[in-house]
Design a binder for these strands. Structure first.
Length: 277
DNA sequence: CAGAGCACCTGTGGGC
DNA sequence: TGCCCACAGGTGCTCT
């Protein structure tokens, strides 16, 4: 689901709604909604705490409290949005949990497939330790052409699964990897170390370009992802190759084909993105 | 270590 | 129309 641009959109949209509100109560409707923390412990930790900030790391929304951090991972179908009232029981079957805020509004975590989870980190050290397992943020200064060149050269893996690996680079998912590889004219099965330096540079630029443009347009919306429960992400109409199987390549007119790479639907132009030797 | 397969869930859409 | 299967933006586990 939500990849970096969508999660960033959610975090930015929620920030003005949440900052300086206090968490008055927490309701859990799906027993597995909390990861690795009991309901009583989580309630005790968050109740009466003021929300200081809302941020993003990798594909996680981070709600910063005065003491500790609530993290939300939306996985495939999660939505996080404010709502004036918690719906009555029979109408909240999609809702995993909800935070009741001091102004009477609520922060709803809705998730049709119920893959999404809420995490609790008690302090900065815990958050930092957790954050260290992820690769660099592609829109931060640490993500340089030099870093990418060096890191790809040191890997024996196929480039698409590597870019999807959050421990290699944070925030990329199926859509933006396909988009970036098409822009850089790299076949998804290419062994990372085999990619020529010039193409690595293009890949670096492509990743940043695609993510930045998508964030500007509030991300990509599919049937079950709309940020804040309602608004459409504008990037859906800008997709260059993802979901365009059967349609002509926007560069060379060859028909875009869909294949399976690392168990994921993968969209390529076989002329622009030559298969590895 | 790299990659395949499957598990977690529910809904939708295509093919027959 | 209705049924069955494949598939969906993610990740984490086991097995080879």
């Amino acid at each position: 689901m939500p990849e970096l641009p969508e999660v960033e959109t959610v975090a930015r949209s929620l920030r003005p709604h949440l900052i300086d509100r206090k968490i008055h109560a927490f309701e859990r409707y799906w027993p597995k909604a909390l990861h690795d923390v009991s309901l009583p412990a989580f309630r005790k930790a968050v109740t009466n705490q003021r929300i200081v900030d809302v941020r993003r790391r990798a594909k996680f929304v981070i709600v910063v409290l005065e003491r500790g951090f609530v993290l939300v991972h939306l996985r495939m179908t999660g939505k996080l949005y404010p709502l004036p009232e918690i719906p009555p029981k029979r109408e909240r079957n999609l809702i995993s949990c909800a935070f009741v805020l001091s102004d009477g509004s609520n922060l709803i975590f809705e998730d049709q497939r119920r893959f999404g989870r809420v995490y609790w980190f008690a302090n900065q050290e815990e958050l930092e330790l957790w954050s260290q397992r992820f690769g660099p943020e592609p829109l931060e200064a640490e993500f340089t052409p030099h870093w990418l060149t060096h890191s790809l050269a040191g890997s024996k893996r196929q480039v698409k699964p590597l870019l999807l690996d959050q421990e290699f680079i944070a925030g990329l998912g199926n859509i933006y990897v396909d988009e970036s590889l098409w822009l850089a004219k790299i076949h998804p099965l290419t062994p990372a170390a085999q990619i020529p330096k010039a193409k690595v540079k293009r890949l670096h630029g492509a990743i940043q370009e695609v993510l930045e443009k998508s964030i500007r347009m509030n991300g990509t919306s599919f049937m079950n992802f709309k940020f804040l429960g309602g608004y459409e992400g504008g990037y859906t109409d800008e997709l260059l190759v993802f979901g365009r199987q059967g349609q002509p390549c926007l560069r060379c007119k060859r028909e875009i084909v869909k294949l399976k790479v690392a168990q994921r639907g993968t969209h390529i132009c076989e002329r622009c993105q030559a298969a590895p030797a």
